[in-house]
Design a protein around this nucleic acid. Structure first.
Lengths: 191, 191
DNA sequence: ATAATTTATTGATTTCGATTAATAAGAAGC
DNA sequence: GCTTCTTATTAATCGAAATCAATAAATTAT
């Protein structure tokens, strides 16, 4: 929980008193690997801070899983569009590995927003960070070849993610077929 | 300017007093068609509310323009990543038609954020709206065929945008070659 | 109005990565 | 341990859209 505190101090200059408010609202949860936390069609009512573990979001396209996001230790994750719009989720949130998370509900966030503008700022910064992340991804998706996407992926993403996320999930995240990723990797290991 | 006032009342329940604060900070600007407002490499120091007109953002890829966003009357536009991160812009902002905009500088936004949490909320809502917009776009880019993208475009976007944005700019926005868009349109007009 | 430039159309060809299919390698379960 | 299921590799074929090339149509400038 201290990790989250540190991050919040960094991000919004949280005071001890403010931490005490937020601390009470956090809900610690443990999940085994491959647990589904948010299902498609349901509204994401929490945002999760990852104490430890590895999670992803994905959606189904013609029965196939398309991964949209990976996150591990000390990051936030949820079905963010569903969370902010409080409409039913198009995607699933699931653990890849055993994970420990702290959840904050949407209702709590709304309360916090009312309590202090600092929390509103937290909401803004989260949204902005997510925006920057997805806009970068969009651009890369549009301009890079399969090989370039993979090279970019391995050097921009957390080592833990690169090493522990199954290859076919990375492929779907990059918008390429698993067979294509396999070929790209083969090509790269030769040269 | 009244249009903006209405939108802000709607969005963040702006009071008359708050409007008076913000009103003073707005800068009215007129641009002729094809004026560049933000250049690649420069930091976007304003966000623009469009009173009237049509604008787009785009970037260059191998010398070719890739449009990333179109906006017209009563919408906000800027090089948003650059604006929120205050880092140099990867894209250009330019008018497609003669336009009248009201600009608010980054410094002003920061001031406003300090004045009242309501402005911080405005910042959050803008970021969230932009997030939702780009995440939807990303998904469509990844799952739809050229034809589906175009059909989706013409029925989700403002008529003004569909009718007045040059076809090759729409093509680049959809991530397809102008020749392909031409063929898609031909096919659609036959059936 | 006419020339120059930009934008759109059409056809031929190529290409990157998808799909299909089969096998191999790993991991999980009994 | 062996079986089953999942994941990854490899090869052959296919296809949607890109590219290349030429022309036509529409704007813009002179």
């Amino acid at each position: 929980m201290d990790k989250l505190k540190k991050i919040l101090i960094d991000l919004i200059q949280l005071t001890e008193e403010e931490w005490d408010i937020i601390k009470e609202k956090l809900n610690r949860q443990e999940y085994t690997a491959k647990s589904t936390i948010i299902k498609e069609g349901r509204i994401a009512d929490c945002i999760y801070f990852i104490e430890k573990g590895l999670l992803r979001t994905y959606y189904l396209r013609d029965g196939k899983e398309i991964s949209t996001y990976f996150a591990c230790d000390e990051q936030f994750i949820t079905s963010y569009s569903s969370f902010i719009s409080q409409t039913s989720s198009l995607e699933y949130l699931e653990t890849i590995e055993n994970s420990i998370v702290y959840s904050i509900s949407f209702a709590t966030m709304m309360e916090l927003y009312k309590i202090a503008s600092k929390f509103e700022k937290l909401g803004r910064l989260l949204a902005e960070k997510n925006y920057l992340c997805v806009i970068e991804r969009t651009r890369k998706m549009q301009t890079l070849t399969a090989k370039q996407k993979y090279l970019d992926f391995i050097d921009s993403y957390n080592k833990k993610i690169v090493q522990r996320v199954p290859q076919h999930q990375i492929a779907s995240y990059l918008g390429i077929a698993p067979e294509s990723l396999s070929r790209v990797r083969k090509e790269l290991s030769i040269s």
